[in-house]
Design a protein around this nucleic acid. Structure first.
Length: 209
DNA sequence: TGCCAGGCCCTCTTTAGGGCCTT
């Protein structure tokens, strides 16, 4: 099976996902999860602002008095700077010198990476991430490419996991999404090293959102 | 009152528009 530990002819892969307060350009991350090989990181962060109703409906997360709740149960939260530093430590742990890991996320180019970079930039940590990784791969673009002419009509992560792996999972929980994405890419999409190279973008490139 | 996300992809395209995808 294709692996994500840097032993398959491509850099180590770190699958990640964010849950946020919404989709707007000023949204804040409230859950940060990363998975590589059998290792995982899962942290909740209490935002300064409010959750959009759509985000609450999708995730079950709510904010009250700057505390975060999942289905009305209080969550243990990590201060945002500590959460980002933990994420950077996780990435360093995944390094196989001289190879630097690739971040992999679904629609990451348009959404997760810009949100993450903004959070890092506010704390002077953006350069640390750019130095730590070899770039990022958007599994949405990768799947659209590899499944071209396959008859797949929905490229939502949940739909791809069901179609390619025959699995249902708890979507909109960042850790479950990151784990499902790891299975989707390694067991379902099975990209070649050149496929990953073709879809790797630099974090230094201007990103939208 | 007026704002309300934005990049990518596809096509009945390129002097554009609409749907997808992320929360």
């Amino acid at each position: 099976m294709l692996s994500d530990d840097g032993e398959s002819g491509h850099p180590p892969l770190v699958f990640f996902d964010l849950e946020t307060t919404g989709l707007s350009r000023d949204c804040e991350m409230v859950q940060l999860a990363a998975v590589s090989s059998s290792h995982s990181l899962n942290l909740y962060v209490a935002p300064q602002g409010r959750m959009d109703w759509g985000a609450t409906r999708a995730t079950g997360l709510t904010v009250r008095h700057h505390r975060l709740f999942l289905h009305k149960r209080p969550l243990l939260c990590t201060p945002p700077t500590e959460a980002l530093l933990a994420f950077l430590c996780f990435i360093h742990m995944c390094q196989k010198p001289p190879q630097r890991p690739l971040l992999v996320g679904h629609n990451a180019r348009a959404f997760d990476v810009p949100v993450l970079l903004r959070a890092l930039e506010r704390r002077g940590l953006r350069g640390a991430l750019e130095d730590a990784v070899g770039g990022a791969v958007d599994s949405l673009a990768l799947s659209r490419d590899l499944l071209r002419d396959s008859g797949v009509s929905s490229f939502k992560q949940e739909a791809l996991v069901r179609r390619l792996l025959g699995e249902d999972y708890a979507a909109h929980d960042a850790l479950q999404d990151a784990r499902a994405l790891q299975r989707l890419v390694l067991q379902g999409l099975k990209p070649r090293a050149e496929d990953l190279r073709r879809h790797t973008f630099s974090l230094g490139e201007p990103t939208g959102h």
